[in-house]
Design a protein around this nucleic acid. Structure first.
Length: 667
RNA sequence: GCCGACGUGGCGCAAUUGGUAGCGCACCCGACUUGUAAUCGGAAGGUUGCGGGUUCGAGUCCCGCCGUCGGCUCCA
């Protein structure tokens, strides 16, 4: 969530044979304390090494400072060890799971008979502070054999398991083993030289706990051992760690900013939507103001889709189960669909995806190659039985509306269609104010889930890859992340505070045309099978509204704002003057109103400010006398004494241009 | 679904060891009228998520549902 400081460019340092990296670092005059301290080195093979590593032969190594991305990982991983030591000091019966660094922090899993309580975190933190302060050294020791490791780890059942599977894991999350040898890190008290604690670990680590500048334990949660529901649940403690107290403070401020932007809170504050318990979990209702937002988002999308050659369709919310048998969804997703209703001998399901119905529209009559690409579009509402623990605000709901389209094209059209589609998607997202993207390419994985031939998958994957590369955006591979019927590109967008959200997806599908027997007649008179491209831009409108709310912190651009203009009279008798002005704006379809309550002007400004209304239009004696109004914008800037015609034109210009910044006196 | 925490009027909070619900904002009424983030006064509003139980007595303790939050798992 926070951008790591760019790593200082540090020259390589030569470590002579038989000396420690630490000695060479010190010799080179590089820092050994503070946020730029060199904490590990990268050897010529790219492997990170502890500072007390002694190479057999002279090597040039790259010093890695604490505040670099690698340095932060080491810091956090070492802090996880300190936490585990503290936990086992306080809870001797606790068995160790795994404890890797993660983005902005770390966690460690423990098997304890009684789950940790929030108060326990304070005790653990206190013990950690003592350990950090004592300046324990991290010291690497390599086991001579698996048997030796097992003997030492006899009391740690989970670690024993890791030793047994060491050949099979080499992921970034399992820090315990991997890299070809079994090693253990001892924490050594610098005063006495005594070993305080040790942990199976491939390393590397900080030279000393003293380099842990600041940390905080964040929360406890349960997590399945090795990520499988079939395994026991361990208690996981999450923490964060930083080189300095200021860096920690910045991070906590960022979290506080994220909390201020939380769409669930803003949705209530701004009267946009709610989740009535009587309706059910994950089923939002949109209030009038949220309704305006939603309609504006949809209307603009509709217009753009019309311009791009899409045709609009409508389909029902329930269907016989047969449809999802044909599509093949039922075997995979029955347990995440609402259970069927039995009627007239058939089982009807709530619609969980729109595609099969669109395929039936395609199939409703014979199709010619002249019609292709045929682009069908629908704001289609679907219902999915999300597990109770995962429902979350607008971002994970049980009833959602997808801006779903299916493009039926000839195989030879696929490449160009994907390219123009990706450009369309990115342009449209940018129009809503999301402009910082990267792409993810999800490809086929192992297992029976994936249907279809290798050749088709390869062809589709290649078409997506070419389009993605042509966009010039960063492309991150996601092996095994594809849907069962085909690979996809997903567009990840960064919001105003740097968080990434998965937005649009583009999926290629060779399977549904076969399953539904879709055809078109080609120019040569033969029957051919079209390719389907599935595409959602918002993903779900509900979720998109949630994301935009957080992106804009509720201060929506003028074109989306539920109330665009509020007139604020200085004195009661200025109200009619503003009402005339507002009437002119309303005639131009601007959402404008006058605050005619008996609050004081200052209070009205405060209210408008809290509602994040883009234009406050104030008028008092001076304005009335001069035929002007005065603007106050959300950022507190002002533009006073603006003639009425000019003021109307100004509002229209800002709203109709769909600008996503401001408005402000300076813009 | 699993683990933990939580659930008090629309919102944010308070209620000593279980003793019969308070405050601020908003809403409503009245008075006041001041050029850029809170005028004053008054009224009203809660069978403390729901259902059981323990107790002379439960917002406070126990059980079960529902919901929310944080994770895990999942995400067509």
């Amino acid at each position: 969530m926070s951008a790591p400081r760019p790593a200082a460019v540090v020259d390589r340092v030569v470590v002579p044979a038989g000396t420690t990296a630490a000695a060479a670092i010190a010799e080179a005059g590089l820092p050994t304390t503070g946020p730029d301290a060199i904490v590990v080195v990268r050897d010529p093979d790219g492997r990170l090494r502890d500072l007390d590593w002694v190479p057999d032969a002279e090597v040039a190594v790259e010093p890695v400072p604490l505040s670099s991305p690698d340095g932060l990982n080491v810091l956090r991983h070492s802090t996880a060890h300190v936490m585990a030591q503290a936990v086992q000091d306080l809870f001797p019966e606790a068995k160790l799971g795994i404890g890797p660094p993660i983005e902005n922090g770390f966690y460690y899993d423990f098997d304890v008979s009684k789950p940790f309580q929030p108060e326990d975190l304070e005790r653990i933190e206190k013990r950690m502070r003592e350990i950090v302060k004592s300046g324990q050294r991290f010291s690497r020791r390599v086991y001579g054999s698996v048997e030796e490791a097992k003997a030492e780890l006899a009391d740690e059942p989970y670690k024993l398991e890791l030793v047994d599977i060491k050949g099979d894991v080499d992921t970034s999350e399992v820090m315990e083993v991997g890299g070809g040898e079994l090693s253990v890190y001892d924490n050594i008290d610098p005063e006495t030289g005594k070993r305080c604690w040790s942990d199976l670990c491939r390393g590397p680590h900080l030279p000393s706990t003293r380099l842990i500048g600041a940390f905080k334990l964040m929360r406890v949660a349960a997590a399945y051992w090795r990520g499988s529901e079939a395994n026991p649940q361990l208690q996981r403690i999450y923490g964060t760690a930083w080189p300095t107290k200021d860096a920690l403070k910045d991070y906590l401020n960022l979290l506080a900013e994220a909390a201020r932007r939380d769409h669930r809170k803003l949705g209530a504050d701004l009267d946009l939507f709610s989740f009535p318990e009587e309706i059910g979990s994950g089923l939002p209702v949109f209030h009038p103001k949220g309704g305006i937002l939603r309609r504006e988002l949809e209307d603009y999308s509709r217009r753009r889709h019309e311009e791009a050659g899409y045709q609009f369709v409508n389909t029902p919310h329930i269907t016989k189960g047969r449809l999802f048998e044909i599509s093949g969804h039922l075997p995979y997703y029955a347990d995440t669909m609402f259970p069927p209703m039995k009627l007239e001998g058939a089982e009807y399901y709530l619609k969980a995806m729109n595609c099969p119905m669109h395929h039936l529209i395609y199939k409703s009559r014979g199709r010619s190659y002249r019609e292709l690409p045929l682009r069908l579009f629908e704001f289609g509402t679907v219902y999915r039985y999300e597990k109770s623990g995962v429902v979350h605000g607008l971002t994970r709901v049980r009833g959602l509306t997808m801006d779903d389209s299916h493009i039926y094209c000839a195989p030879e059209q696929m490449g160009d269609e994907i390219k123009s589609l990706l450009r369309f998607v990115l342009d449209l997202l940018a129009d809503y104010g999301l402009e910082d993207f990267y792409l993810e390419l999800s490809t086929r994985g192992e297992g029976p889930k994936f249907i279809g031939s290798e050749e088709e998958w390869a062809e589709a994957t290649e078409a997506l890859r070419v389009a993605a590369e042509e966009s010039g955006l960063e492309l991150v591979p996601d092996p095994g992340g594809a849907a069962f019927y085909g690979p996809k590109i997903s567009v990840q967008a960064k919001d105003a505070i740097g968080r990434t959200w998965q937005m649009s997806t583009i999926q290629v599908d060779f399977q549904m045309p076969q399953r539904f027997g879709l055809e078109y007649q080609a120019a040569d008179g033969t029957r051919k099978r079209p390719v389907i491209i599935h595409r959602a831009l918002f993903g779900s409108i509900e979720r998109f509204i949630g994301v935009l709310t957080e992106h804009y912190a509720g201060a929506f651009p003028a074109w989306l704002a539920p109330v665009q203009v509020v007139g604020i009279p200085v004195r009661e008798d200025h109200t009619p003057y503003l009402q005339d002005f507002v009437a002119r704006l309303r005639a131009e379809r601007i959402r404008a109103e006058v605050d005619a309550s008996d609050d004081r002007m200052q209070k009205k400004i405060r209210n408008a400010q809290q509602q994040k209304i883009p234009f406050m239009v104030i008028a008092g004696d001076t304005d009335v006398a001069n035929g002007t109004v005065s603007f106050r914008y959300r950022d507190g800037s002002q533009r006073n004494g603006v003639p009425l015609d000019e003021a109307v034109a100004h509002v229209l210009e800002v709203v109709r241009s769909r600008t996503n910044v401001g408005p402000s006196a300076s813009a």
